[in-house]
């Protein structure tokens, strides 16, 4: 089917195949839809700069040892304390003589780890609550959504603080605390998406063929929910980064000497008036990365709105 000749301006070209107004297969239609969304996305300069920032963050985290010297991120050189920017230390040094540039570069690994781990927890939990609620309806729906509503009604940061306080400081516990307060919107989203596709004919056809509920949910409904869940996750990333940095700033996130950006801002507070860069640079890093995720998420949402 997919290899059938496609009517279009330039037969045979990939672009023409993707943009064909009369797709010959469902696969072509889907790819075409994504390609059009991508074309719309590419026209949006803010979204593209968001994508660039996020890509840069990932590259920086992956190639951190090539960009900066790992040792100088943690090495305390006390006679080099609080140096302003120089060739040797592009962002200066902190109150323990550590190179701020290297710490920012290696801090990106911590930020990325937190973001990925929260995503990995939140999406499955959200789906696990939202999908059955939407699929089975009735009592299951009522009970699960009540629980979700209760969690939605909570103050997120305060609850994350309480969790972090109870579990003790540390990255893993910060991740758990954030994830515990971040899943409810995903459950709602998954439920809404499930409800719209629940009555679709191909779902009922699968049911008639004797597919089990689990199988239908896993193979038919999950793929339908994923795009909107991923967009939502991108939009949430900025908030997750800010919450994580906030916990770090309060001393509840990554523990010293780990170069966590929020904790770096906190340690720079003491010398804010005289050595402003110590607190400013890592704060700027937090800001740029969360701005990048916001721009990317906005662009993705706009592109997907245009698609539907």
């Amino acid at each position: 089917m997919a290899t059938a000749p496609v009517p279009g301006p330039v037969p045979g070209s990939l672009r023409a195949w993707l943009l064909s107004p009369a797709p010959a297969s469902r696969r072509q239609a889907r790819f075409g839809r994504w390609f059009r969304a991508w074309l719309g996305f590419r026209r949006n300069p803010l979204a593209m700069s968001g994508l660039a920032i996020v890509a840069l963050l990932v590259l920086m985290a992956v190639f951190a040892p090539l960009i900066a010297d790992q040792q100088s991120a943690t090495l305390q050189v006390l006679q080099d304390r609080l140096q302003p920017a120089s060739w040797q230390h592009p962002f200066g040094t902190d109150e323990l003589g550590r190179d701020i540039f290297a710490r920012v570069v290696f801090g990106s690994r911590i930020t990325l780890t937190i973001v990925v781990m929260v995503g990995v927890i939140v999406v499955p939990v959200g789906l696990a609550i939202g999908l059955p609620a939407g699929y089975f309806g009735g009592v299951v729906d009522t009970v699960l959504m009540r629980i979700t509503d209760i969690f939605l009604a909570f103050p997120r940061l305060v609850l994350a603080l309480a969790f972090a306080a109870a579990l003790g400081p540390g990255i893993e516990n910060a991740v758990i605390a954030i994830a515990l307060t971040a899943w409810p919107p995903y459950a709602r989203l998954a439920r809404a998406e499930t409800l719209t596709s629940r009555r679709a004919e191909f779902i009922q056809a699968a049911e008639l063929q004797g597919a089990s509920h689990l199988r239908i949910i896993a193979t038919q409904i999950v793929p339908l929910c994923l795009p909107s869940v991923i967009i939502r996750l991108t939009l949430d990333m900025a908030g997750i980064i800010l919450t994580a940095a906030g916990l770090g700033f309060l001393g509840l996130g990554a523990q010293p000497p780990a170069p966590e950006w929020g904790a770096m801002v906190s340690s720079g507070r003491q010398v804010l008036l005289d050595q402003w860069w110590v607190a400013t640079i890592p704060g700027l890093a937090i800001f740029i990365v969360s701005l990048g995720f916001n721009l990317l998420g906005d662009g993705l949402r706009d592109a997907s709105d245009a698609r539907s």
Binding site: G246, G283, F287, S290
Partner: peptide, 8 residues
């Protein structure tokens, strides 16, 4: 405003 860490 959305992207700014408030403590910073």
């Amino acid at each position: 405003g959305y992207s700014m860490p408030v403590f910073w």
